[in-house]
Every structure is written in C-alpha cells, then in structure tokens.
Amino acid sequence: MAPSFENFQRRRLISSYFSVVLSIFLVLFLLGALGLFVIHSEKISNSFKEDIPMSVYFNDEANDTILKAFETKLKGSPFVKDFVFVSKEDAAKNNKDIVGEDFLEFLGMNPLPNSFDIHLKSEYVESSKIKQIESDIKTNEMVTEVIYDKKLVELANENIKKISFWILVISSVFGVISMLLINSSLRLSVYSNRFIIKTMQMVGATKSFIRKPFVWRSIRLGLIGSGLAIIALIALTFYVDGMFPKLGIAKDYLSMFIILGGVLAVGIIITWISTYVATTRFLNLRTDDLY
C-alpha cells in the first residue's frame, strides 16, 4: 500500500512541476516574441515605407546625357535608398509579359517613356518631405510626371504611429498578466506543500531554512522554463529571418541578447519573488487556517 501511495505522490509532484514549467515556458515565450516584435517594429515599418516606389517619367526628348545626369544626381541624393532605370524597351517588354500581347505590333511604335523607379529612405517617406522631393525633381524640364501612391504614404505614417502605441499598451498589459500567471502557478505548487511547511515549522525549523529549498526548486523550474522559451525564441527568430531576410533580425545580436537575457532574468526573478512571498504567507498562517 505504501509503495502505491508513494508512486501516487511522486506522479502528482511531477505533474505539478510539469505544469509550472509549462506555464513559465508559454508565458515567457509569448512575452519574448512580443518583445522581439516591439524591438524590431521600427525595422518592419521602415521596410514597408521603403517598398513604396516613386516613378519619374521623362519625355522623348530626354537623351542619354540628360538621363545620365539625372542618374548621377540620384546617386548623390541623401533621400534615395536605391533606384532602377527602366528604358522604353524594358518597359515595353515588361508590359508584354504582364498583358501577354505585344502592343508594338499593332501600334507600330513604342509610346512608353524612359523612367526611373526610386525607393526613398524611410525617414523621407512622409507627406511633407516627399512633396518637397517631388517638387525638386519636377524642376527638371525633361520630367513629365512623378507618380507615387500619396494615399498609401499617408496611411503608412498614420497607422504605424497607432500600431506602435497599441503595441506598447498590449506589451505592458501582457507583461502584468504574465507575472500573475507565473505567480499563480507557483503559489499552487507551494500550496500543495503547505502541511509540510507547517510541520517543519512546528518542529522548530526557522523560516529561512524552510523557505530555502522551495525557493531554489522554483528557481530551477524557472531556469528550465526560461531555457525552453529561449530555444523556441531562437527558432522563431531564424524562421522569421528566413521569411523576411531584408530585416536582418537574426544578425541583430544586441537585440537578441537583450530579449533572451530578459527572458532568463524574468524567469528567475518572478519565480524567486513568487515562491518567497507564497512560502512566507503559509509560514505566517495559523494551523487552523491551512484547512
């Protein structure tokens, strides 16, 4: 009968440990993933802004010298991230690939102009700055038209500010919830040992002596949960980096160190504080209150 009871107690203890580690792992993983998103939110928004193209079209009188001079000007412009020259012939070929028909056959001429597709640096993708750039480009008499999605630029800047604000709010709320969940799991774990705590106290053990093994056990569980969360976060980082290599998330070692170090620190600190408070509470309870 005794071995059966001991096995039951052992299984219950393992189940309790497993639930605590699982809670710590899930909470810290979600918190770390949110932290990665917050840290790299500026990169994400900048990448989106820099993907908005500006097309500059030239009239047919613009010769190679004029086009080369404009290209040289773009290379020296602080607002240009990159650009591509699209010749009349390339534009016709691209149109043929999209439409599936060669319009040159029945038109007998190529009406498409030479153009430059420009991607601006993110800090210049704002309504006031991009209008100034547009005005500057239009001072060139050979430029017939400058086209970019004005509405998309406005929406990008407005929504990015809103999203950044709500991310900070959600992060704060989630951080509090995370601490409460881990604290609850650890308190339940200590609660299951409340009679052992009180028995040790009744036979003369000091509070610090009773508290110490519980605190160290919780810290070990916190380390295991944090370690699993760190492994999962590293895997997530490399997965996202493979999906969006332009962001260079996996190569941002400082951000990775901050997030992973933060996850480890939170796992240790919360488990230590929660267990310390929980054991102190049961140590201060009267025996009748344990029931």
Rank of each mutant, 00 (worst) to 15 (best):
G222H: 02
S41R: 09
I249A: 02
G227E: 04
Y191N: 10
I234V: 15
V56G: 02
E158S: 07
G262F: 03
I230Y: 02
F209H: 09
P245S: 09
E123R: 05
M243C: 09
G227M: 09
S77T: 00
V143K: 11
E134T: 13
I44F: 00
V21G: 00
W216K: 06
E89A: 02
Y124H: 12
F244M: 15
T144F: 04
L22A: 13
F257Q: 00
T275Q: 08
Q132W: 08
M109N: 07
L186D: 05
K68W: 00
T279A: 10
L290T: 11
S171N: 01
L120V: 12
K68I: 04
Q9N: 06
S255D: 02
N95K: 12
L120W: 03
M1I: 11
R281G: 13
T144Y: 10
G204M: 04
R12F: 04
K151T: 14
S15R: 00
G35R: 12
K73L: 02
L26T: 13
T279I: 14
M202S: 10
V125N: 02
T237V: 13
Y148S: 14
N159D: 08
K43D: 10
L36H: 12
I196L: 09
E101K: 13
K129V: 11
E145V: 14
L180H: 14
R11L: 02
N157D: 08
R10C: 01
L228V: 01
R281A: 14
A229I: 06
T287P: 08
E154C: 15
F195D: 08
A33Y: 05
G225M: 00
M1V: 11
L36D: 05
A92E: 05
P111L: 03
N157T: 06
G248A: 04
V263P: 07
I66C: 00
K198C: 03
V21E: 00
V125R: 00
G248L: 11
F116G: 00
F37Q: 12
V173K: 08
D149H: 15
I182M: 08
E71R: 06
S4F: 07
D97N: 13
